[in-house]
Design a binder for these strands. Structure first.
Lengths: 214, 214
DNA sequence: GGTCACAGTAAACATTTGTTTACACTGGCC
DNA sequence: GGCCAGTGTAAACAAATGTTTACTGTGACC
């Protein structure tokens, strides 16, 4: 029997997060998770009370982690879509999500299986997007359009999709939309589309997309 | 014992589709589905061979159904985003998805749990979007932009999100994005954003969004 | 009427599941 | 050293799972 260690609860929680985020992960058993974490099934129950308790702990942790990214973006709202500071979002996303993070896939899991807690997590993301968008409207940087709510919804959807639909989007883009060059290209393209709504943007009209990084 | 009926296999398949699409539905048991379909668990195994066989049958059916919508849109590519024919997409979506269709939620399920079959279904949707977008580029109606692949990816994501993220999008929009007024508003807003990329669109420049439905 | 293919089901079966129980170990404190 | 709280585990437990088996009923055909 190994010595006692206080690192086991987070270890278990993280193993669960990884498994739950995978295809078929909703059917991961207490024994699957115990094996992945290198502990006994009974220890999971001891620390978290039940499988439901474990799921709650994972959800709470994910909310904290994703909240960190949103906090970062909220400190620089333009950073999310401004082509000149797109590196800021890309850097933050790379740092938080790396190449192998289960968080975006877990967000997707929350969308389909999360019930009330999943809906709350998704709302965390979309509310942050909508607030950032409103800040930019207030600053006069963008236009709310004839149907302001629809436009805000579109902006929020684009943000949510970049996280939750990371994999199909990555296939389409030919690069990971949350890290490195892929993140820069994605945010640049989103910025171009939204820059179209600037009240005083390009004055030449319809299509003026020379070189956004110069 | 009831009389024999050839309607039981589709009845079972549809009950399974509904259950699988719900939160927690990945854990739906053969007994849950049997109860929902009003048959015995053993009948499901008799007709589909196994639970895996049932899942395959559901996937095949969903691919057929979603293919029907894409076929409709492919016959009128502009219909997906042109504000003047947005009613065409809205009508088709309403007819296919109604108020209560499990298909969009099942697509979301496929994204997270579908493995290869899920990826194939998602590709069905995104390929169709990309092809429609390319048709519009070829027709000179829109511009590919400085990063054509990123722009096509953005268009495809918007389409995929409207289906798979129907519920959070509906909350943001304040209406269902796949039926009725909500579908019209959503497609109108998407059209406005994408019309911005027209090579010879509005010549007044930055923000010219008078009244798109007049 | 008898035979056959097919559909449908209850019961049984072997395995898996989440959880509980009983025990051992560790380290800190007196 | 003894006691205690906390950690960790193997085994046991009751329930649930997907599937198989054995049987019945139906309708078509001869």
């Amino acid at each position: 029997m190994s010595p006692s260690t206080s690192s086991n609860p987070p270890l278990i929680r993280d193993a669960a997060l990884r498994l739950f985020a995978e295809p078929g992960g909703a059917r991961a058993s207490v024994r699957d998770i115990a094996t992945a974490a290198g502990v006994s099934p009974a220890l999971i129950i001891r620390h978290f009370g039940s499988m439901e308790g474990l799921r709650e702990a994972v959800d709470a942790h994910v909310a904290t982690q994703i909240g960190a990214l949103l906090e970062h973006i909220a400190s620089d709202p333009a950073g999310a879509i401004d082509p000149h500071s797109s590196a800021s979002f890309a850097d933050a996303a790379t740092r938080l999500f790396g190449d192998d993070s289960p968080l975006p896939r877990y967000l997707l899991r929350s969308l389909v299986d999360g019930g009330d807690r999943g809906a709350a997590l998704v709302e965390l993301v979309t509310r942050s997007s909508v607030e950032a968008w409103q800040s930019m409207i207030d600053a006069g940087a963008v236009s709310p359009g004839p149907d302001p709510r629809a436009r805000a919804a579109l902006v929020a959807m684009i943000d949510l999709a970049a996280l939750a639909l990371r994999e199909p989007l990555g296939s389409l883009l030919g690069a990971d939309p949350l890290t490195g060059e892929g993140a820069e290209r994605w945010t640049a393209e989103v910025a171009r589309m939204l820059a179209r709504t600037s009240p005083h943007g390009a004055s030449a009209g319809s299509e003026h997309e020379g070189n956004p990084h110069d």
